[in-house]
Nucleic acid binder design. Sequence first.
DNA 1: CCCGGAACCTGAAGGC
DNA 2: TGCCTTCAGGTTCCGG
Length: 270
Amino acid sequence: MPELPEVETIKNELSPHVLGRKITDVQILSRYVVRKPEAEKFPSRILGQKITDVGRRGKYLIFCLESGEYLVIHLKMAGSLLLGHNPEEAPKYTRAVISLNSGGKIYFRDPRHFGRMWLVKNVGEALGKLGPEPLSSDFTPEVLIGLLKKRKAPIKALLLDQNIIAGIGNMYADEILHDAGIHPLRSAESLSRDEIERIYRAIKKILPAAIESGGASVRNYSRPGGEPGTAHFSFKVAHGLGGKTCPCGGEIVRIVVRNRGTYFCLKCQK
DNA sequence: CCCGGAACCTGAAGGC
DNA sequence: TGCCTTCAGGTTCCGG
C-alpha cells in the first residue's frame, strides 16, 4: 500500500516510539518476510540493539542500529507497521513482532506476504538501484528533464519506475499527471519542456500535501497508531476516488498502463 | 539499454 | 448466501 507519503508518515509517527529504545525480542511468524540474513540468524543479530535513527529512501524504511547495521523494511503492496503493547493483540496477518524495552511492540502486518525485511551493513545491499528522492533539493526540473530524455515509454510507466525517481507509486502518479494536465500514455520524449516542468511542480506539490495529511488510507492502510490518513480525500482521479467527474467537468476514465489501473480525465489531460 | 507483460500471494468487493 | 471473477497502493524477472 504505501508510497512515499505513507512511508514518510510511518517514519514520522514511529520515530518517537523507537528512537533510543532497545530491541528486547524478535518473533518471526513467517520466515518469508526475512530476506537477509537467514531467518534463523536474523533475531539474534538485532536482539539487544538500540535504534539510533529512523530514515526513509524511496518506499524503504530504514532503522539505524547502534552496531552500525541497518534494519531495512519494504511494505510492498499490503504491508503495514502497527504499534501495540499487548502481545496477545497481534493483528491478523502479523508476520513479525519486534519488542522494545519501553514495553511497546511493532507489528509487521502483511496479508499478501509481499513485504520484506533485511539486516545489512550497507543499505545498498537491500535497496538496489534507486533514482533521486523527489523531495530533495537536488531534484530540480533539469534533473527530471535529463531523466526523461529520449525515453519512449508512457510517462505514467516512467513515473512508477523506481530507477528513475524513488517513491512515486500508482495513486500519486495518477494525481501528479492530473495536476499537470498530462495524459498518462504520452511518451516521455513527446513532452515539451513546459510540460515536464508542470509534472515537476505537481510532484513537489502533491507529495508534501499528502504527507501533511498522514498519507492516503485506501483499502487497509493505516498509520502506526491505527488511525487512517486523509490524503485520499483530496484525490481528483486516483483509484476512482475522485468521483466520476473531474472538477473541470470532464469524464474520468480507467485504462490499464503497464498492468496498473490508471485513472485520468478525458478533458483536461492531453 | 529500453520496453512490455507475467509472476509473486492472498484478501476484499462486486456481479449473478 | 455462495460462487466466480476482478481488482489491489510494488517489485522483479524474462523475452523481444
